[in-house]
Amino acid sequence: MKITVCHLYPDLLNLYGDRGNVLAFVQRCRWRGWQVEVMEVNLGDPVNFADVDFLFIGGGSDREQNLIAADMGKRVENLNRAIENKLVVLAICGGYQLLGKYYRTPEGKEIPGLGLLDIYTVAGDTRLIGNVAVEAELDSKKTMLVGFENHGGKTFINDTMPLGKVVSGNGNNGVDGTEGARYKNVFCSYLHGPLLPKNPALTDYLISLALERRGYDLELTELDDSFEESANKAMVKRLIG
């Protein structure tokens, strides 16, 4: 079995060590003995999202986000079809905002996003920065996700399902207690850290969804997660006690 991972714009969207998410997904597949191919897709590179098992979109600085919006415009139909067919996606921070309907600047201008999720983002007056703990339910199991948020935009998710409930920190907007968003197999979050290495339950859930989409019904082999768990617990303890 070979798994195909697509890292979208690794040269542009690579703030805050987010490539660690790709590394975590890849390593946890390899440790289980599967072959993984990582495709790095940059501006103008061809890709058919239907052939991808896991798509990762990170965050970038403002200058870089602008370059991307134009390139993504050409791919949006192909991506939309793959998402409707249960493509597993993880989008962090800027990548998360990009999937939404629009981003409203402080001057009130609405910059259109890809419109794949019914969410929107409004520029805030202060950045939301700090460690975060989020309670999420994955495959009907409750789990505590930890990470570090650092965003100026406040995202509102309408009726979209959140990734989880903020236990400590700000999450989407600092107001409604939600963090991230979920739609079909698309998972969005503001959490850096990066998110997947310290939250192996989420990583494994994404892996099992990717396998399911390919028609495999496999029970994932358990891995020794003592380092991951101690990193996760240390932060939960610091934030919640």
């Binding site: 690579n14 805050y16 060590g17 987010d18 490539r19 660690g20 590394l23 920065i129 700090g130 460690n131 570090f148 650092n150 850096h192 850290g193 990066p194 290495p197």
Partner: peptide, 9 residues
């Protein structure tokens, strides 16, 4: 730096 994400870079 309060964010240790940089270790992944």
């Amino acid at each position: 730096g309060r964010d240790v994400s940089w270790l992944w870079d």
